[in-house]
Design a protein around this nucleic acid. Sequence first.
DNA 1: GTTCTGTATCTTGCATACAAGACGGAGATT
DNA 2: AATCTCCGTCTTGTATGCAAGATACAGAAC
Lengths: 230, 230
Amino acid sequence: MTSMKAIRRFKVQQPKSLVTIVEERLRKAIIDAEMRFGEALSEDALSSALGVSRTPVREALARLQLQGLVTIVPKKGTFVFAPTAEDVAELCTFRFMLETNALRECLATAREATLDGMASAIAAMDAAQASGTRHDYARADTGFHEVFFLHCGNRYLGNAYRSVSGRVAALRTHLSVPLEGEQARSMSEHRLMVEAFASGRLADLDGLLRQHILRARDAYGDVLRRASAG
Amino acid sequence: MTSMKAIRRFKVQQPKSLVTIVEERLRKAIIDAEMRFGEALSEDALSSALGVSRTPVREALARLQLQGLVTIVPKKGTFVFAPTAEDVAELCTFRFMLETNALRECLATAREATLDGMASAIAAMDAAQASGTRHDYARADTGFHEVFFLHCGNRYLGNAYRSVSGRVAALRTHLSVPLEGEQARSMSEHRLMVEAFASGRLADLDGLLRQHILRARDAYGDVLRRASAG
DNA sequence: GTTCTGTATCTTGCATACAAGACGGAGATT
DNA sequence: AATCTCCGTCTTGTATGCAAGATACAGAAC
């Protein structure tokens, strides 16, 4: 083994567990609207569809429940989450709180890195708007907001965001996609936020973020109310 | 079944699943310092000690990992979490953010209920200080802070707190217990916070909370550094 | 004495079998 | 016709068995 001392970094990524694979697959399916709100998910059906046993499926579903993406009813079944208008309102309020705090930290301790991240995210959004699908745009939008938590320097803040980001992303693809004018307005709002951040105008940034998220909240609420009514 | 129509609310709580029981038992064991930071937890040993099979134990451990109370290392084992000084710092910063936001909501929308809850919590702390163990006091302290999230009207905020409250509580019992003067200072700080809340002085409240939590952060950090050094 | 190597024994990961609650529909009963 | 009852079939909950990676230690080779 003496010759090994010369080798510094040679790690292999160990294979993901089946649980993780199933979790990510289902997460994607829910977020990308391959399944509808409230749809039933049978452990048995999923396990045979995915070619694994029920054990990892079950564990993955348990994790997804912790992320609020599915609801497990004892002895009855597992269902894709079905948000109510109040849910969405609380979710967006919470999201605003997290993001505004993360941005404050970013501005104080990682200004340049955050600006870079925002720039690439904006570029991705541009590309998606020009030639991608609506889901591509939604994904890029999600990426923009993740930048804050990547650079905020507080893992707990990031974890908290991750625990709701699935729902937020799902709402985006499930509900926002139909609204036509949304994309353009969203783009301009994001650009304004970058400008405010770049020039360090924290109060303006806060206002923009509040407006951005709360408007989304109202839009989602409307769609949901309309859906549950008709 | 016609006579049943007269009966409105008659639900029974269905028995907790083994997973839940095991989870709560282990959570208590970790929080109450029955186990040390970093201690190894074997699924096999736990299952035979608790008289259940490995399946519910395994699922409970997965949940506890999501709460940050244990760390699961693939193919190696599960261990009680072992916080570093930086961990604690980030945790406390995050906690301050959550609590200050929750308190703002409480003051705006549920002033009376929150005051009542704080009063009972203070009473419990008094009782514990007079004639209880240190763990009793730590539990009452935990209860005081939970009041905010009970009345803040945002489930996501509450969930986020719950996802770190286990660690906070564990730190309290593991680290704060040795410090003698702590309890008295803690009591007076809590009382001041209630006063500020009652008179609606939000800025003062914020300052008190910040001081309260950040001082705890530094104290925990000191203990941890001392422990890892010696 | 030092270093390598095989192996015994931990650990978790996953599959499968069985138990038991929840639900819905067919048929009996009124 | 309306209602009750039973039972088949869905679901999840739990136990258990086997495979395979990780680790530590004893013993061989130098």
